[in-house]
Amino acid sequence: MQSVTVDGVDFAYGSGELILKDVTIDIRNPQLISIIGPNGVGKSTLIHCMNRILTPRKGTVMVDDVNVEEYKVKELAKKMGYVPYSANDTFPLTVVDTILMGRNPHRKWKSLHDDMQVVKEVLEMMDITPLAMRPFNELSAGQHQRVMLARGLAQEPEILLLDEPTANLDIRHQMDVIRLLKQLSVKRGIVVIMISHDLNIAAKYSDNIIMMSEGTIYAVGKPVDVITPESVKAVYGVDTDVVLSDGRPHMMIRDHGFSEEDAATPEGSTVSGVTTSGMNG
């Protein structure tokens, strides 16, 4: 059974300030895990330490109980996939070629035909079949996101790390992607670890949530235990009401200090209502 174990990890760029401070976490069994926390608390850094993009200053990272440093690059890529937040498109490829990159760890001399079957499947899963032969740079931000996800899925990893997979997506595609990730964890037995800024989506679908604050882990556990008005206030500094819906926490922002007068327009300017009158249709 797959596992990711982070043990006493400190990380800093060069001799700079510590971004991760003595982080310890043990992830086992197929599940969907969300890492939440404000900007700049080290969520991406933690993920990058897990997949060896960054090397911790202190502590160890184990994947399937083997130190991550000991893996050959292709072996690690077979175990662990990564979907970055943004994609580079200096030299854009077609969507198919971009997704085929993900097949690299599995690729053999004559395996293109087999690899194409996987590509076809993930094109369907991500709802981007009609875009297959389009150049990457002609796509919208949301379409980029889905192509990057497809690339990660084509890699067929046992552990999938995702950096804000639902950013840039409309609500329907957000739902589709999260449901898909949840399904992967259940049906294919994959450990899915994603960074999320949408606490309600994280709460609704995650099996466990890791809440980070200033380079440390503030809380770990079931959504209902982690997302509370107290923890959200402590970590984000925002007042919220949390209600339970289907046994899952649902958070609503409470901002009683805000009134319409605070947002009043400066004197002399007028703001007209937004209407559709006079427009076509």
């Binding site: 997949n51 993009i53 690059v73 994609a87 580079n88 490829l93 070629d97 990159m101 690299n104």
Partner: peptide, 20 residues
């Protein structure tokens, strides 16, 4: 050439896709 193509995704992404 396939490895070089993957390098255009950036060093970090390339290494997570099995390129040294």
């Amino acid at each position: 050439s396939n490895q070089v193509t993957i390098m255009t995704a950036g060093d970090r992404s390339a290494s997570t896709m099995g390129v040294w």
